[in-house]
């Protein structure tokens, strides 16, 4: 009722409407004002769906039976980030802190260290991403001067049982494959068992990802 009262008041002072704004009157007849017929119609629809879904041949069900069934993501979905390894399996990251600086969610935590390798000099001793904080904005990827962090995996962070588990460390982030690489690894698997990349465990990990009971069962490549 209050709403209608306002409407009438506004109408009486309606001459001050800005140009281009049209006031539309909401014509409600007696049955609309009672609401009861509308409620009955809505309930009828619900009951119809209920029985159709149980006994009918064509069901109305929209629910996807996750995780048995998965919806294919759009091709441009980037997904969770990963650290890109060098050939020796160590991360490309030089601990320049550009990603940490760019990160609006402050979810990246790096501790830098020094190596004896003069070509590298600086490397991340700790590289952690708090997946609970990450907003998957991709600014870290933009900021990285050496393409050490990418968002090309096409899947979510796995669900975790504690906050600590959501802090993904260097090994976790290195162990993930990009969408294309995973695909390539998967295709190779059809021909013959892949030679595991010694030291990195990368290929092994990727297969675990595909299997239902793999060690990193939470990672799911839904491409």
């Amino acid at each position: 009722m209050g709403g209608h009262g306002h409407g009438n008041e506004a109408k009486s002072a309606g001459s001050d409407l800005p140009e281009g704004v049209v006031r539309v009157s909401r014509n409600m007849d007696a049955s609309d004002r009672l609401f009861v017929p509308a409620i009955a119609a809505g309930l009828g629809q619900t009951v119809k769906h209920f029985f159709t879904n149980i006994f009918g041949k064509e069901k109305y069900t929209q629910t996807v039976q996750y995780p048995d069934v998965k919806i294919e993501y759009p091709h441009r979905f980037r997904g969770m980030h990963r650290l890109v390894p060098r050939e020796d399996g160590n991360p490309r990251c030089v601990a320049c802190f550009m990603c940490q600086t760019a990160c609006p969610a402050r979810c990246i935590h790096i501790v830098a260290g020094e190596t004896d390798d003069q070509r590298i000099e600086k490397f991340p001793v700790i590289f952690e991403i708090d997946e609970l904080r990450c907003v998957v904005c991709g600014l870290c990827v933009e900021a990285c001067p050496c393409d050490a962090i990418r968002m090309d995996t096409g899947f979510h962070p796995k669900p975790v049982y504690s906050r600590e588990d959501a802090d993904f460390g260097k090994a976790d982030l290195l162990g993930i494959l990009g969408r294309e690489e995973a695909k390539a690894a998967g295709q190779r698997a059809k021909d013959k068992p892949p030679a595991t990349a010694a030291g990195t465990g990368r290929v092994e990990r990727a297969h675990g990802d595909h299997g239902a009971g793999g060690s990193a069962g939470g990672y799911d490549h839904s491409h």
Binding site: C96, F97, T101, A112, G113, E114, K122
Partner: peptide, 9 residues
């Protein structure tokens, strides 16, 4: 101080 903190932090 080397590699401890970036100066802008």
């Amino acid at each position: 101080f080397r590699f401890k903190v970036r100066s802008w932090f």
